[in-house]
Nucleic acid binder design. Structure first.
Lengths: 348, 348
DNA sequence: CTGAAAGCGCTTACAG
DNA sequence: CTGAAAGCGCTTACAG
């Protein structure tokens, strides 16, 4: 069997409890015995058994991650590696480790999450997405288990600590940007309406139009599954309209790529015929042709802060729930042009 | 405190050991008491504590994942969500859960892995990449800890169970495909030479050339970091050559996208001026303009099989190490054309 | 500053 | 078919 605290204790001529204390670096142990014990640990190649530790002190030093269903198209979005990077970074800093949900149906994932919390496998959970009426979120809240969500919880956002962008504001900015450039036929291509981020961005878009006195046109709002296939559908719908839009607010970079590829196919060019701004500013945006103007939502930061908040919550479960807002910034590249009565004026 | 096996035992009027047995569905317990115990569990809302269980029976039902450094560009490759999907699927089937490495320097990751194995946090590990002289792989092997790698271990591949494509063959196929189409100036754009996959594909490429009697040209082999930036560098190098290539074997789809975008910039068109075949057949390949001809390496399957093998290994640690080879298939789209003395013949 | 003891919540021979 | 007991490897009051 592996070497245990007892073996170390014996060799160092102390009690197991003393060994435990030097592991915890308890200040009440003399430097001398600490040294002796440490030598023994070194010599024997001792490593603590985390299961035993967790069982004894009721803390696991690990946080659970709830991803969207791996069957879901969203899962493929480069958003996830990037949030993961943020999450992983903060977790590593604080010496927490990561536990991942599995399963491809919501039921299965929920079961897994129940296992995490009831089985005491994790100290807290971060949800990497936020959708309306999510059973997992509901469960976590019922259990009063420490958790944090990336995105805005739809119901009772004040009850749940979350980190999000101001997606309403961001979409409004983007839409206003188009308006300033002279566009009036501005369409919104949204993703799954279950995703809170979609509804927030849609309201921002609508608000900007209203403020500018541009009548809302139902035909200009289309919702498709995230990702590229969706982009293509969107093009079919929008550009068979009698009066197609000249500018597109697209909720996701990948979708925008899909749109651009389809546009190309039907002989329309970006930005000459249609301008596009999308969201996320994923690496790919820069390498599209032409490079995509996109809203950088600081994905890394979203992940980083989400575990930061979670850790605070674990340390003090009764602390007030908070909302942290990660700033966004539109990164201008080459998919927006000024709209004039007839034809190209300049490309910006 | 949470409800434990003792509470259930008391309510059901049996010994804790009996409860434990009905949880394990031990056939020696009568159906009657099983029912009684289950009712008690249901009534009390009992859930087993996994830490206690793991401690007692020395098995965690979880597998550890070693990802490349999150700081590494490779991490962003859509390859990873897709392997993860395969991994997650098989793990879920067998009721295993997933544990993830964190950290961005190799040192840190190694430390994390040491924690996993020594701390008995996982029953086995799958490495999601394979690079030359990898400390983590060496460690795992020294410890004789059950693990499996996706890709081919560089040293002593017979000693380590792994699942891989026949990358040598695949690259050879692709190169021969170009040769059949009349190309002679065929370049190879590889990734990081530390990655075993790069060296395998390079040899396949070289072999095909040799067999066809095409002299090897050092200038036609360039290595850059995976992903898009790399693609752009590659273009600069290759197309400032006195005699630039007419066909490109590109080791990764994203890199190919970068290449295409750069080619576009300098006024060369695909496939008219240069043909491209890349690897992975990631979703994006289909939506490039023009859609990329790419080698589908069955990423999902790689992940799925990797955990399958791992589970076998955990069940029988002394079983022979094996290599499973996942088939590949080139998916023809629109980036390859037949090369003639002068100009376009047909696009295929 | 250190030790003896109890306990964390399970599982698993051993007995009957 | 079921129970009593020991044990998995730690931690943490309690005492001194």
């Amino acid at each position: 069997m592996a070497v245990t605290i007892k073996d170390v204790a014996k060799l160092a001529n102390v009690a197991p409890s003393t060994v435990s204390r030097v592991i915890a670096n308890n200040p009440r142990i003399s430097e001398q015995t600490k040294r002796r014990v440490r030598e023994a640990m070194e010599y024997l190649g001792y490593h603590p058994n985390y299961n035993a530790r967790s069982l004894a002190n009721k803390s696991t030093q690990t946080i659970g991650l709830v991803m969207p269903s791996s069957a879901d198209k969203v899962f493929q979005n480069p958003f996830f590696p990037e949030v993961l990077r943020g999450i992983s970074t903060k977790a590593h800093e604080k010496e927490y480790t990561l536990y991942m949900s599995t399963g491809s149906k919501e039921e299965d994932i929920l079961e897994g999450v129940m296992g995490m919390v009831h089985g005491r496998r994790v100290d807290g959970i971060v949800m990497l997405y936020s959708r309306i009426d999510d059973k997992i979120m509901t469960f976590l809240q019922e259990q009063n288990f420490p958790f944090t969500v990336i995105g805005k919880p739809f119901a009772l956002p004040d009850t749940i600590t979350h980190v999000d962008n101001d997606n309403y504001r961001a979409a409004k900015d983007v839409t206003e940007h188009f308006i300033e450039k002279g566009h009036e036929c501005i369409a919104f291509v949204g993703g799954n309406l279950d995703l809170v981020v979609t509804v927030d961005r849609l309201s921002g878009y609508e608000k900007a139009l209203r403020e500018a006195g541009i009548p809302h046109n139902d035909d200009y709002v289309v919702h498709v599954e995230f990702l590229k296939e969706g982009g293509q559908e969107a093009v079919m719908e929008l550009f068979s309209l009698p009066k197609p839009p000249t500018a597109l607010v697209v909720v996701d970079d990948l979708m925008a790529l899909g749109i651009m590829s389809k546009l190309d196919e039907i002989g329309l060019s970006v930005p000459e015929d249609v301008s596009i701004i999308s969201f996320n500013n994923v690496m790919l945006a820069e390498y599209a042709s032409p490079p995509l103007t996109s809203v950088d939502i600081n994905i890394f930061e979203l992940g980083y802060e989400a575990v930061n908040c979670l850790l605070e919550k674990i340390a003090d479960p009764d602390a007030e729930n908070k909302r942290v807002c990660i700033p966004h910034k539109v990164v201008e590249r080459w998919t927006v042009r000024t709209q004039t009565e007839n034809g190209i004026e300049n490309v910006k």
